[in-house]
Design a protein around this nucleic acid. Sequence first.
DNA 1: ATTTTTTTCTATAAACCTATAGATTCTATA
DNA 2: TATAGAATCTATAGGTTTATAGAAAAAAAT
Lengths: 202, 202
Amino acid sequence: MNPDSQNTPRYHQQHQKAIEAAASVFAEKGYHGASTQDIASHMGIRQGSLYYYFTSKEAALEEVCLAALRDYVNQMEQISKQVQPLKEKLTAAIGAHLASYRSNSEALKVHNEQRLYLSEEKREKLKTLGSRYRQQLEDILIEGIHSGVLNKSLDCHFAALSLIGLCNYWGAMLTRDPKLTLNEITSKCMHFVLNGCLRQIN
Amino acid sequence: MNPDSQNTPRYHQQHQKAIEAAASVFAEKGYHGASTQDIASHMGIRQGSLYYYFTSKEAALEEVCLAALRDYVNQMEQISKQVQPLKEKLTAAIGAHLASYRSNSEALKVHNEQRLYLSEEKREKLKTLGSRYRQQLEDILIEGIHSGVLNKSLDCHFAALSLIGLCNYWGAMLTRDPKLTLNEITSKCMHFVLNGCLRQIN
DNA sequence: ATTTTTTTCTATAAACCTATAGATTCTATA
DNA sequence: TATAGAATCTATAGGTTTATAGAAAAAAAT
């Protein structure tokens, strides 16, 4: 394959479609449960032709994960840049996280559930991006402490990870149960994370 | 195979070993990523011999999930029966959930992450047990409201599910990062769930 | 000690899966 | 319209996987 060929608009567009198809199929069947045949069928080409866009099945998984993270980190960057009170920022962050499960061709779900099946080397690449995303969330929380909205003794690292865990759980639920609405889950998560379960004592 | 043969002590013991081997292998490689060869090797028998204990690979997954849930629901039953203040009960529940990720041959992890690969029919069977477990957690929370410890307006259903999501997340972390200690994560989860992140206003 | 039953093994059929090579069709441009 | 290059297809090698059948070994019963 001529290396230039990857610069045509058509290549770019089909490559994109291939990533989306892979994301969708991996999300449904898991990495090992999905075949390259499944992915190819999903985008309407033959199994062998897929290798014009991916060098291997594992490379497909890597691209899906990278795309998901890049999208997500960018979104978070936008949110954390904005000058807004904590609650608005956090709502935006949680909402974006949950929304990506519905819209993002399930790529984020694949990242969360299937990235362990990548080789160690490829997983490392993801880690950098992934921790940037956690760090941004953490920064939002730290800012919230400084502005006096959040508890001074909050362990922001633990809280950020917990928030991610919570969003991943409800994000996965959103993809399975169409009756759940994005807004409702977002606001319930917000309330849960901010207030906890205890009775407030005034 | 004579159907009586399943009643010998040896059969029972080996069958148990097979379930544990399957749990361990599925936890590490995922259902589709693991082969019946892997499971057999893990328990020191030949691939073909495994079919003396499982009718199929999928049946193995089902048995692992069922065993995990049964164990877990029993544990929860013990905890919810005890007459204890809410915080103690909840700590015991969270602790038991997290602990099972380390001790339980990873069967619970398999249930949480791999049960989607079961046929719909088999998944249904699990649902009953699974919702009993969620219900018990929910009941603990409801009791907490009545005793005045928890917020009256708490959505116990949502909170119970969120708690499960949180425990699954940290449980998975516990299996990956040996530096994390069970007690520390348990108490941090408790604190997070009870108090949330907001500054308490007195 | 012999027979029966249980457990494990060997060997293999049948299906499936990834990845590649080379032929073919399509598309854009000269 | 002829031609070069891009995109897709067909066919297949080489490997793995699940599941089964029948032989062999081990254990239990007579």
